[in-house]
Simulated scan of single mutants.
Amino acid sequence: MEIKQDDKRFFIGKGENPEAYIHFENFGQDKLIIDHTYVGESLRGQGIGEQLVDAVVEHAREENRKIVAHCPYARDVLTDNEDYEDVFIGLRSSE
């Protein structure tokens, strides 16, 4: 599945009606806020949501930004993966 990007989303499918997407907003010069993740029923259980979170993580790294996750799903994925510590601003379960 090809993950595409526009100004505020990574998505799978057509841009006007994607099958899955993760939406983010720029916050200041150095942060991104993930506020919503959606995976359509036909794509669930395939790791698509995690792939979308990973796409935002790579984007944040390329732009030297940090991520704040208001979306509960994205926050859980980011919290549970130590590989994202360099970009994620949030409490870890061990804190």
Rank of each mutant, 00 (worst) to 15 (best):
D30P: 00
E58T: 06
F10Q: 09
K4L: 15
E95Y: 14
R9T: 09
T37K: 07
H70T: 03
E16P: 00
V53R: 00
N64P: 04
M1K: 07
D80C: 12
T37R: 10
I12Q: 07
I3V: 13
E58S: 12
E25F: 14
Y38M: 13
V56Q: 09
S42D: 07
E25S: 10
E2H: 05
Q46Y: 08
K4N: 13
Q5G: 06
G49W: 04
I3M: 10
R92N: 15
V53T: 06
I34E: 00
H36C: 05
H36L: 09
G49A: 14
Y73E: 07
E2I: 05
R65C: 05
F24T: 01
L78Y: 08
I22R: 03
V57I: 11
P18G: 04
G45I: 03
R65D: 02
D54Y: 05
D80F: 11
T79S: 06
K8W: 01
R44W: 05
N81K: 15
E85C: 08
Q5H: 09
Q29M: 04
G90Y: 12
E41K: 11
I3G: 08
K31G: 01
G45C: 10
E2W: 00
E95V: 15
D7M: 02
F27R: 08
L43P: 11
R65M: 04
Q51V: 01
D86H: 08
K4V: 10
D80M: 14
L52C: 06
L91Q: 14
V57Q: 04
S94V: 15
L91F: 08
F88S: 06
R61C: 01
S93Y: 13
H59Y: 14
K4W: 11
I22H: 03
V39F: 07
S94D: 15
R61T: 01
